[in-house]
Design a binder for these strands. Structure first.
Length: 203
DNA sequence: ATGTCGATTTAC
DNA sequence: TAAATCGACATC
């Protein structure tokens, strides 16, 4: 019998790859909760534990930008999974999404909030603040997060599975019945979840 | 070339 | 409750 080797918590764990992201957005959004977003800058590394996501499930989803068709902005969503979909909104905020599903599926997950790690003091609660905190700009659009050394996601081998709550997505009242779909996922035990804080019931 | 809008945040 | 502020998109 070989000895079971307990895994050492390692600072840079395996970068999540295409097999992780090439699933439906709803699944990826759920499984992204509790993972770690890593940003490698010139002089320092920024890390945050993802605690809130939203799934945008395809062109038929009226809240999804892909519902507007294939345009310059939405182009990356129609490409391979694991790419960053970054867009600029309200004249001042970038939003970080990760493309999911098979190539051509046009699904994505919006990363809405994270708990800063390693003693980093930053408010990462809300998609605008999260992208700003991590220094993510429009220029990161289409970056391949499965191979990039500048921006990627890793599992958190030290944490036990989070308690997850589902709610409707934020700010998509225009999307007909799609506004009511439970496609927002939050860590029920995190204080960093953004504004519309859900009741503490688990799913 | 011009007009509208927005997966937000912040201030009043 | 509303202003801030600008890229993408639609339209002319």
């Amino acid at each position: 019998m070989s000895k079971v080797r307990r895994r050492q918590p390692s600072r840079s764990d395996a970068q999540l790859d295409e097999s992780f992201f090439s699933r439906p957005a709803e699944i990826v959004a759920r499984n992204l909760i509790g993972t770690i977003l890593v940003r490698q800058l010139r002089t320092r590394q920024l890390r945050g534990r993802i605690v809130e996501t939203e799934a945008y499930v395809g062109p038929h989803d009226l809240a999804c930008h892909a519902a507007k068709g294939r345009t310059r902005r939405t182009e990356v969503m129609f490409g391979p999974p694991g790419r960053a979909y970054v867009y600029f909104i309200y004249g001042m905020y970038e939003m970080l999404n990760i493309v999911t599903g098979g190539e051509g599926d046009a699904q994505a997950v919006l990363v809405r909030a994270a708990d800063p790690l390693d003693g980093w003091e930053e408010n990462l609660s809300g998609p605008g603040r999260l992208a700003r905190g991590f220094g993510i700009k429009l220029s990161e659009n289409a970056l391949d997060l499965t191979t990039s050394k500048k921006l990627f996601v890793t599992p958190d081998p030290t944490s036990r599975p989070p308690r997850i709550v589902r709610t409707p997505r934020v700010g998509v009242d225009y999307a007909k019945h799609w506004k009511d779909e439970l496609l927002r996922f939050v860590d029920a035990d995190s204080a960093a979840v953004s504004k519309p804080r859900p009741p503490r019931q688990s799913t």
